[in-house]
Amino acid sequence: MQETKSAYPLRDKASDRLYAYSGRPLKDISAEAIAAGELSAEDLRTQADALRQQAEIARDGGYPQLAANLMRAAELTDVPNEELLRIYDVLRPERASYEELQRLADYLEDRYDAGENAAFIREAADVYRDRNLLRR
């Protein structure tokens, strides 16, 4: 289903469909649950479906680049925190070889089904090669 602007905000209009990264439905994320010690960080973390819906809303609203970013973000929801920080560092200037970037793209695609991010990193690798931004 393609979301449109009329579905926004999801918090008000689709809260019965929303769930946390842990899988817990939004309606079960309550003060009582916190007080009972039932919730962890994963219960207050977003997940890919919500980000994809937001991407569709952004596209419908005339913000295609933001939509593309949110689609990449949706792919990254399963990537652990430390790994995200490591990938960011590898993309900084002169950190990686062309082959290492290609391998990173392959890994994201294979491990997390992150095709958009993989294409993004392959594009970076080509530019880094042409513009002397690879590790020397």
Binding site: T46, A73, L76, I121
Partner: peptide
């Protein structure tokens, strides 16, 4: 110490955590 791609990736990383 950045490129447009590293910064854009960081933006997606933030968004992935809401």
């Amino acid at each position: 110490d950045d490129t447009p791609w590293s910064k854009a990736f960081l933006a997606s990383a933030y968004a992935s955590r809401g």
